[in-house]
Design a protein around this nucleic acid. Sequence first.
DNA 1: TTTTTTATAGTGGTCAGACCAGTTTATTTT
DNA 2: AAAATAAACTGGTCTGACCACTATAAAAAA
Lengths: 211, 211
Amino acid sequence: MIPYVNSPQNNTKVYIEIVKQLRFMIQHDGLKPGDRLPSERELSERLGVGRSSVREALRALELLGLIETRRGEGTFIRDFRGNQLVQLLSTFILQDQKAIRDVKETKFLIELDCLWLIIQKAEKDQLLKFKNWALEADYTDDEFFLEVVTLADNHLFLRIWMILKDYYNSLELKKMIVSQTEYAELIDTLISKNESEVIRVYKNLRKLSKG
Amino acid sequence: MIPYVNSPQNNTKVYIEIVKQLRFMIQHDGLKPGDRLPSERELSERLGVGRSSVREALRALELLGLIETRRGEGTFIRDFRGNQLVQLLSTFILQDQKAIRDVKETKFLIELDCLWLIIQKAEKDQLLKFKNWALEADYTDDEFFLEVVTLADNHLFLRIWMILKDYYNSLELKKMIVSQTEYAELIDTLISKNESEVIRVYKNLRKLSKG
DNA sequence: TTTTTTATAGTGGTCAGACCAGTTTATTTT
DNA sequence: AAAATAAACTGGTCTGACCACTATAAAAAA
């Protein structure tokens, strides 16, 4: 086949071109999450490039979380609404030890953001169900706020919060004890859509007078 | 050398291990943007793995924008602000309308968070200097809010915002026109530490009645 | 001496081929 | 028809070979 990728006047790297070709291929063939891509050897042949270059492109996309590879089976398109990327960047970025305060601060504010989003978006019966659960079930603080962030219905916030949560826990700070009634009270303020009360109750729950 | 990477009980992919080793190396040696990494051949030898595996790792990091490679010169650490990958991810990910809404929503709330942090933390003379700049200098909306996020003095928010900003710009939405006086008004509310006014002015600046 | 030119060693970019370790499919045996 | 076996495929990795380009050291010219 004619090597799209390796034509003389093209001076961009081969693996970048392969990424572009893959993107085109996915769009053109309407491939969806779960679908299989052609094998490395077939791509190599079809695009007229070496297999190692194909692999460089695929590995890059894999690290980005866009595809998934299973030995012996093949390469598959992934459900990439979340971004692996933030995951990865964070591990690069969060080496910085002095960022502890930033992590706490960010986690708190994002939790507040999600509470605010819930007020804007959530249905009342969703919240009532949530409250029942909060009163009866057994859960950790993380599990409670996972529900909150999920209810906020913003995938980016969910991803960011997940990372922050993990990092926060790795700090091994002393845990606050929060009673079920406090959680329930927070949900009540959501139901009543009282923004300032949400902030007050949340801060109190986190034992914060100030941010 | 002992191959860290290829020990028997380790069944994760070699290139992933190399990424981890690189991260460790960067942290341990305190490498900063602009610094050079060891050559591919040297890494291959030092880690006891094939050069092609090293390249898979490096290409992935390059696509992520974390490193930069110059033929004949070497591989360098980059001042990563998500640039490269955003272009790519945006076309892969952001076809989805909900994802687009999430990006807008998240950027909006994080900007508000930063404004709130400024009220808590910033010194008055910092803000006055900021206002002078806002009235006299020439800047884009991104540049203005980069100042805001910087003033919030939270590295994590800075990083997240940078990524979001790039995502957001890659959406190619129509830009709002904001006058210098509007920006200055926002800074005034910061100086007066009036939280509800900050929210109102910011929303107005973004032409939002609701989130 | 200083400058310029020229060779050389080093670096990333790419390819081809080999082998291993799994999975799937086809074939054979029971 | 079911089970066991063989073959064909797929990704994972390594090695060695070139090429193109850059930086450095050596040699030649000024």
